[in-house]
Every structure is written in C-alpha cells, then in structure tokens.
Computed example of a mutant assay.
Amino acid sequence: MKISANRVTCLTGESGAAQTSLLRLLNRMNEPDSGSVFYQDQLLDNLNPIEHRRKVTLLSQTPFTIPGTIEENLQLGLELTDKSNAEFVKALDTVLLQKSLSDDAEILSGGEKQRLALAR
C-alpha cells in the first residue's frame, strides 16, 4: 500500500478490518510481524520513535487523560516538545476547547477529551 503525500486519505472497512492496526504500525506503536513499513521513503525501523511520533500522531477513539486538571494533562505533552506552558491556551483555542486550564479533565465529554489529547 502506498499513501500519497499532501493528500487526505481515508481508511474504511468493517470492524476488525485492520484500520487501527495499520495506523498503529505507521505510528510505531506496533511492529510488523513480517514485511517493512516506510515513512517518506525511510524504513520506520531506522527512525527514532519519539521523533517520528512528533510528525505522525494517532488519536484513539478513547483518548488517554490523567486524573487532574486540563493543565496537568497538557504538561504531559511538554516532555515530547520544546513548547512552553505559555502556549497551553493557544493549543486549547486551536482545537476549539473552551475550558479553563484549572478545569477537571475527568469531567470532560468524550469529544472534549479528544480535543484535549489533540492539544497535548
């Protein structure tokens, strides 16, 4: 399978047809049992997983959040980037999550948790 650059690609299929498996392979969350996976003509095995995940992100239907505030959840993302806390509000605006940094992340709706994960 080859996915063209600078195009929107949609994966569809019945439940269990391996859409999530493919995305997990592309994000290096899983390793292939056989064959090879390339990203921009580079073998994924040769790429640093952390650096790669900064470019290729995966948002699950049930995003990960930790107990605590929205700010505490956003701070998790700082470990993988050179951004500062000052950019938290901008990140929330970008994903259209109109909440305070001090709000409890556990009481967010499913869609709001997805936006929080995107902002992170």
Rank of each mutant, 00 (worst) to 15 (best):
M1W: 01
K2L: 08
S4K: 10
A5Y: 02
A5C: 05
R7E: 13
R7A: 08
R7S: 12
T9E: 11
L11C: 01
L11E: 06
T12K: 04
T12S: 13
T12A: 08
E14P: 10
E14W: 02
S15E: 06
A17L: 04
A17C: 14
A17I: 03
A18M: 03
Q19F: 01
S21R: 12
L22G: 03
L22F: 02
L22R: 03
L23K: 00
L23D: 02
R24K: 14
R24C: 02
L25I: 03
L25P: 03
L25N: 11
L25H: 09
L26C: 10
L26K: 04
L26Y: 01
R28S: 08
R28K: 10
R28P: 00
M29Q: 15
M29C: 09
N30K: 07
E31T: 09
D33S: 10
S34R: 10
S34V: 02
S36T: 13
S36L: 08
F38I: 00
F38A: 13
F38T: 04
Y39W: 11
Q40V: 04
D41G: 05
D41N: 12
Q42R: 15
Q42P: 03
L43W: 05
L43R: 08
L43T: 02
L44M: 14
L44F: 05
L44Y: 09
D45Y: 04
D45N: 10
N46V: 03
L47A: 10
L47G: 05
P49W: 09
I50A: 07
I50C: 06
I50L: 09
I50H: 10
E51D: 13
E51P: 00
R53D: 11
R53H: 07
R54P: 00
K55I: 03
K55P: 02
K55M: 05
T57I: 05
L59Y: 03
Q61L: 00
T62D: 14
T62C: 00
F64G: 05
F64E: 14
F64W: 11
F64N: 12
I66V: 14
I66P: 04
I66C: 06
P67D: 12
P67T: 06
G68E: 14
E71A: 15
E72V: 02
E72M: 05
N73Q: 10
N73F: 02
Q75A: 09
G77Q: 14
E79W: 01
L80T: 02
L80H: 05
T81Q: 11
D82I: 01
S84D: 15
S84E: 15
N85C: 10
A86L: 08
E87N: 08
E87A: 09
E87R: 06
K90Q: 15
K90M: 06
K90W: 05
L92Q: 13
T94F: 14
T94N: 15
V95W: 04
L96T: 02
Q98D: 14
Q98H: 08
K99G: 00
K99A: 07
K99S: 06
K99Y: 00
S100A: 09
S100H: 08
S102L: 05
D104A: 08
D104I: 04
A105D: 07
A105L: 03
A105Q: 08
E106T: 15
E106V: 10
I107Q: 13
I107D: 13
L108Y: 06
S109H: 07
S109E: 12
S109W: 12
G110P: 01
G111D: 08
E112K: 03
E112V: 00
K113M: 13
Q114S: 12
R115I: 02
R115K: 15
L116K: 03
L118V: 12
L118H: 09
L118F: 13
R120Q: 07
